[in-house]
Amino acid sequence: MKRALNLILPLLLAIAVLGFWEWIVTARHIPPYVLPAPGAIAAALAGNFGSLMASLLTTLTVTMEGFIAALVAGAALAILFSQSRLAERALYPYAVILQVTPIVAIAPLILIWVGFEHINLALTLIAALVAFFPILSNTALGLKSADQNLLELMHLYGASRWQILWRLQFPTALPYLLGAMKIAGGLSLIGAVVAEFVAGSGTATGLAWRIVESGNRLEIAMLFAALALLASLGIAIFAVLSLLEWALLKNWHESALSQRN
């Protein structure tokens, strides 16, 4: 009953808002280049379904590749940090600099360096850069958070560095990593969108570019359609990563247990 209500309530609200939106646009004669009615947006979506899906796929590909690159690089660097205090001291400040410098400011440089002929590589790199830091910092924290007594026990039984890493530090870090992945998934989508904006029309063909293009042509219904798809993509990424988190932690981690009650 409570679960059903959790689904029905937001749905009812959405129907009410869309209904009101449709009504006010018609009743007040709001021009479609200011605010198109939901019906018009749906029509734009249906009318351009093929090309919008192609754009969605482009943006999804850049987002996923950026995300995976960030995941691999962030986790690998975190493991390096956990094994070598020297490496951590030397490299961590640069990771922070990378994090605090706004990506919009670096994006043009990356596009020039990588080159417009490798536009997708440049976009992926930008998406990866945005998503990289949360993975690195959370995983590094997780790897350091191993229970001290368990660590002593491992030493007592003569465990090697890799046994400790694999059997103790990595499982300890897993909830941290999964939490970071949920943040990084959203960030890599933002990175992909920013990258497409900076790359500009004619080179990028993803959803963000469709938004820029529609805005320039005052096709606001189309803009909304692309925006809706972009939001859906973000929600889908978050949902998949939440599901992954739940599947991996459901048996033992407090976060998954409290949800059950």
Binding site: D147, N149, L153, N251, H253
Partner: peptide, 11 residues
């Protein structure tokens, strides 16, 4: 060695 806490791996 047995610690004050059970010190088990929760996973």
């Amino acid at each position: 060695f047995v610690f004050q806490e059970p010190t088990l791996m929760p996973w």
